[in-house]
Design a protein around this nucleic acid. Structure first.
Length: 459
RNA sequence: UCCUGGGUAGCUCAGUCGGUAGAGCAGGUGACUGUUAAUCACCCUGUCGGGGGUUCGAGUCCCUCCCCAGGAGCCA
C-alpha cells in the first residue's frame, strides 16, 4: 500500500493520530536538543514540519544523517503546532533513514539557485520548490486538456512520431534511420533504409489529425514534436509538446472560439488547483503573474485582423528595429508591442497575407489573405497558431504546385478534398509556452522536465 | 546561424591603474528547550573555462578555441 501523502495530511489534519510519512528533508533547524525538519514528499509545495528530539533512540547519531536531501520514513503523532508558520506538525517517535545525502557534496543548498545551475543537474532539479511546482502545474494542465476536449465530444488521436511527410514550413526534421553513418552517403541512400524512404521525427501531427477529423469530426493530438532547428532562445526547444485540435465542419471563427475557450479554461483550472504553486511563482518569479492570469480567465481576448494590427502598430508611432508594413511578417518586437503595449493582454490576430503562410491555409475571398489566426500573449508571444484549412481541391492543388509539393507525395492529403471534403479548421498550441504563461517562467527550458536544445541532451 | 554579455571557492558574485585572490551563502566545529532563509562564534574551501602571446610580473591586456546566457531569425 502506498504511504499517506503530505498533501492529504495537511488538507485533512487528522490530529492526535499516529502517522507514517516518507519524504526528503528540505532543511533542518536546531534549537538546543530539538530539531525541526522540513519534510517534503513532493505531493504539494508545503512541507510537513517534523519535530525530532532526544526522546528518539540514538538521537545524536541519527541527527548526523538528518541533512538536506536525505530521505526518511517517520512514525509520529500529528499535533497542532504551537508556533507560527504552520498549522500542524508531526512529533516524531521513530525516524528511519532511507537514504543519506552527504552535505559536503549534495548540490542543493538551503538557498536559491540559478535556473541555469539547476539545468546542469537534471537528476536533482525537480527536488527544488520551483521546478517541482512547475512539474505539478504541468501535470494539472495535462489532465485539464483531456478533460476539456472529452467534455466537448473530441477524440484523442495518437498521430505518428515517426513520419515520412515533412509538414511544409514547420522547420527541419530529425532523420530516423538504421543506416550506419557511412551508408547514408551512398547513392541509393534511404531506399535501403528501414522504411524504404527518408523518415523523420514528426514536426507536427496536423496533417494526420486532419485525416481523423474528416472521419471522427472532432479530434485532437497531443504529444512530443521535434524540430532540428539550430535555434537557441528562451522560447524554443528541439523536443516539445504540442496540442493540435482539428475540427470538421468548423471555420476560422469557430477555431478562434475554441482556442480562446481552451486557454481560458486551462488558466482557470490551474488557478483553482495550483493556488499554492502560483503563490510561489508570484513571490519569486513574477509579481504580475496573478493579475495576468486573472485577466486571462475573466476577460475576452481582443481580436484584430492582420491589416488592423499593422495599422495600429504604424499609428502607435513606436520606433521598431524592423519596419511595419502590410505584407511583411510581424516580428517578435511587433507582436510584443501589440499585445503588451497596445492591447495589454492576449490578442488574436487573423487573416494574414497569403505569401507568409503555409499552403494548407484557406484562401480568403480577397485572394491575398488566408484564414489564419495566431494568439499572442504578453511575455511569450505566439502561443497558438491555427487556420481554417483549404478544403477546395482545385485551390489546394494549385497552391501545392506553387510551393513545389509533388502530388505523388501528398496525394493522400489531396484525397481528403476529393472524397467528401468539408470545411475544417484547427490549431497548434505549444504546451511549454502555456506552462510558461501560467508559471511566469522566463525560459522555456524550465517548462519541461528534460529540455532538449542544440548541444544539450544530458540524460 | 548572427549580435551582445558572460565563464573567479560547492552556489551567487566582487576583484580598482597589470603586482601573486575575497565577500555572502553553503559546508565543518561549538553555543542555544520551539525553530521558520533560525541566531551567534570560530574554521575549511581556488586548474581565475582551455591553449597561446605581450610583460620582470596577467584573473586583469592581445589572439584563438570551447561552453553558457540574453536578444534576433525560424516557429509552437
Amino acid at each position: 500500500m502506498l504511504p499517506q501523502q503530505i498533501a492529504e495530511i495537511l488538507r485533512t489534519k487528522p490530529f492526535d493520530s499516529r502517522l507514517f510519512v516518507s519524504g526528503w528533508i528540505k532543511t533542518r533547524r536546531d534549537s538546543g536538543a530539538v530539531s525541526f525538519i522540513e519534510l517534503s514528499d513532493g505531493s504539494c509545495l508545503a512541507n510537513l514540519q517534523v519535530i525530532a528530539g532526544p526522546g528518539l533512540g540514538n538521537f545524536e547519531r541519527l541527527r548526523r544523517d538528518l541533512t538536506t536531501g536525505a530521505s526518511i520514513r517517520v512514525r509520529g503523532l500529528l499535533v497542532p503546532s504551537p508556533a507560527q508558520g504552520q498549522e500542524v506538525e508531526l512529533r516524531a517517535e521513530e525516524i528511519e533513514i532511507l537514504g543519506t545525502a552527504d552535505p559536503e557534496s549534495y548540490p542543493l543548498q538551503k538557498k536559491r539557485h540559478s535556473f541555469e545551475f539547476l539545468r546542469t543537474i537534471p537528476q536533482l532539479r525537480p527536488r527544488t520548490n520551483a521546478l517541482a511546482s512547475v512539474a505539478r502545474v504541468r501535470s494539472c494542465l495535462n489532465y485539464a486538456v483531456h478533460r476539456f476536449f472529452c467534455e466537448r465530444g473530441f477524440f484523442q488521436v495518437h498521430t505518428p512520431i515517426i513520419t515520412t511527410s515533412d509538414c511544409e514550413g514547420a522547420g527541419e526534421m530529425f532523420t530516423v534511420t538504421v543506416l550506419a553513418p557511412g551508408e547514408l552517403n551512398e547513392k541509393e541512400g534511404f531506399a535501403r533504409d528501414f522504411f524504404g524512404r527518408r523518415a523523420g521525427l514528426t514536426v507536427s501531427g496536423q496533417l494526420q489529425a486532419e485525416i481523423y477529423a474528416l472521419a471522427l469530426g472532432r479530434v485532437y493530438t497531443f504529444g512530443p514534436t521535434f524540430r532540428a532547428e539550430n535555434s537557441n532562445t528562451s522560447r524554443h526547444l528541439a523536443e516539445f509538446w504540442m496540442l493540435e485540435p482539428e475540427m470538421a465542419f468548423c471555420d476560422l471563427q469557430g477555431d478562434m472560439e475554441i482556442a480562446e475557450e481552451l486557454i481560458r479554461y486551462l488558466v482557470s483550472e490551474v488557478r483553482r488547483e495550483c493556488a499554492a504553486e502560483i503563490g510561489l511563482f508570484a513571490r519569486f518569479i513574477d509579481r504580475e503573474l496573478p493579475a495576468r492570469l486573472e485577466r486571462i480567465a475573466s476577460k475576452p481576448f481582443a481580436r484584430l485582423s492582420y491589416g488592423e494590427a499593422v495599422d495600429r502598430l504604424i499609428a502607435s508611432g513606436a520606433s521598431f528595429e524592423f519596419p511595419v508594413a502590410w505584407g511583411m511578417d510581424l516580428q517578435s518586437e511587433h507582436e510584443r508591442y501589440l499585445c503588451e503595449k497596445i492591447i495589454g493582454g492576449p490578442v488574436i490576430v487573423s487573416d494574414y497575407p497569403l505569401a507568409i503562410k503555409p499552403f494548407y491555409m484557406r484562401l480568403n475571398d480577397d485572394r491575398r489573405t488566408v484564414a489564419a489566426m495566431d494568439i499572442l500573449v504578453p511575455g511569450i508571444g505566439e502561443l497558438v497558431g491555427g487556420s481554417q484549412r483549404e478544403e477546395r481541391y482545385d485551390v489546394l492543388a494549385e497552391r501545392m504546385a506553387q510551393v513545389g509539393l509533388k502530388e505523388e507525395d501528398y496525394g493522400w492529403y489531396l484525397d481528403l478534398r476529393r472524397y467528401g471534403s468539408v470545411p475544417h479548421a484547427g490549431f497548434g498550441l505549444g504546451f511549454e509556452r502555456l506552462v510558461q504563461l501560467v508559471t511566469g517562467m522566463q525560459n522555456i527550458r524550465e517548462a519541461i522536465p528534460f529540455p532538449r536544445t542544440p548541444g544539450s541532451a544530458p540524460c
